[in-house]
C-alpha cells in the first residue's frame, strides 16, 4: 500500500511572541485525494501550506512526506521532496531578473544539467499550452497578473509533481483560464494520482476541489467529509470575526 502523500499529526505553529496560529492540526492526504483548507484569518492556511511545503517548521507536532518524517529528513532530502511538490501560494513569484523561459526551466537546468537550449526545448509545449510562448523572452514585469500566475503554474507543472499545494487557485485568473487549469489538474490527478491540498477563504472551492474539508476556527480545526460539510459552520466562524462575506458566498 502506498504511503500517504502527506500526513500531519498535532501540528502547532506559534509565533515568537507566543501567539499560536493553530494547534492540534492533524490530517492525511492520500494519493489522488483532494483536500480543502478553509481558514479565516487566512494566515493560518498560508502558514500550514508552507509547513506542508517544507519551507516552515512547526513548533510542535510531526509531519511526514511520502512516508518519511521531517525528523528523518536531511536538507538534501527536503530539496528532493520539494521537487515532488508543486506549490503555488498567493505570494509565489517569478524571479524578476530572469525571462519567462528561464523561470520555467530553472529547475530542469539546475537538476538535469541541461544547457539552456535543451531545457527550452523541453518546455516549449507547456509554454504553448499556457499561451505564453510569444512572451517567453520577456521578463515577468512585462506580463499581466494572469499571465504571471499562469507562468507560475507552468513552472510548477514542468516539475511533474505528485503533490500540489495551492492557495487561492482562482486568484488573478479569468474563468476560461481557471477552467483550463482545472482540466490540467484533473488529468494529473487521474493519470498520475496527484494529490491536492487547496487553501481558500471561499467555501465554493469545496464543490470543485474537495474530497474532505478542514475548517480553521479560533486556531483549531474541524474535519468534514465533503458530503457532511455545512457552509454555515464556516459562515458562523466568519461572522464571529466580523469578516466581510464575499459575493460568491452570499449568493451561495
Amino acid at each position: 500500500m502506498r504511503k500517504p502523500l502527506i500526513s500531519a499529526e498535532n501540528l502547532e505553529y506559534c509565533e515568537e511572541d507566543g501567539n499560536c496560529l493553530f494547534t492540534e492540526v492533524s490530517f492525511s492526504l492520500e494519493w489522488g485525494q483532494r483536500g480543502v483548507l478553509l481558514a479565516e484569518p487566512h494566515r493560518c492556511a498560508n502558514i500550514l501550506l508552507k509547513i506542508c511545503a517544507t519551507l516552515f517548521q512547526p513548533t510542535n507536532g510531526t509531519i511526514s512526506w511520502f512516508g518519511r518524517s521531517a525528523e528523518e529528513s536531511d536538507e538534501k532530502w527536503l530539496h528532493h521532496v520539494r521537487r515532488r511538490i508543486g506549490f503555488v501560494h498567493r505570494e509565489t513569484s517569478l524571479i524578476s531578473n530572469m525571462t519567462i523561459l528561464d523561470n520555467i526551466s530553472l529547475g530542469i537546468q539546475y537538476h538535469e544539467e541541461l544547457i539552456r537550449e535543451q531545457a527550452y526545448d523541453r518546455i516549449t509545449e507547456v509554454l504553448k499550452q499556457f499561451e505564453l510562448y510569444e512572451y517567453r523572452l520577456l521578463r515577468p514585469a512585462a506580463l499581466t497578473f494572469e499571465q504571471r500566475r499562469l507562468a507560475v503554474y507552468a513552472r510548477e507543472l514542468v516539475k511533474k509533481p505528485q503533490l500540489f499545494l495551492l492557495e487561492h487557485p482562482s486568484l488573478d485568473l479569468g474563468e476560461r483560464v481557471y477552467s483550463f487549469l482545472l482540466e490540467v489538474f484533473k488529468k494529473c490527478s487521474i493519470e498520475d494520482g496527484c494529490g491536492f491540498l487547496v487553501a481558500s477563504m471561499i467555501p465554493e472551492v469545496v464543490n470543485r476541489w474537495g474530497d474532505w474539508v478542514m475548517v480553521f476556527d479560533q486556531g483549531r480545526c474541524r474535519h468534514f467529509e465533503v458530503g457532511q460539510f455545512d457552509p454555515s459552520i464556516y459562515r458562523e466562524s466568519m461572522r464571529r470575526r466580523g469578516t466581510t462575506v464575499s459575493r460568491e458566498w452570499r449568493n451561495g
Binding site: 511545503a53 519551507l55 521537487r83 509565489t92 513569484s93 517569478l94 529547475g107 539546475y110 537538476h111 507560475v152
Partner: peptide, 14 residues
C-alpha cells in the same frame, strides 16, 4: 521580500 527565494527553494534548489 518578494518570495523569490521560496520559489527557488520550491524548485528543489538550495
Amino acid at each position: 521580500v518578494l518570495g523569490e527565494i521560496e520559489s527557488i527553494e520550491m524548485q528543489g534548489i538550495d
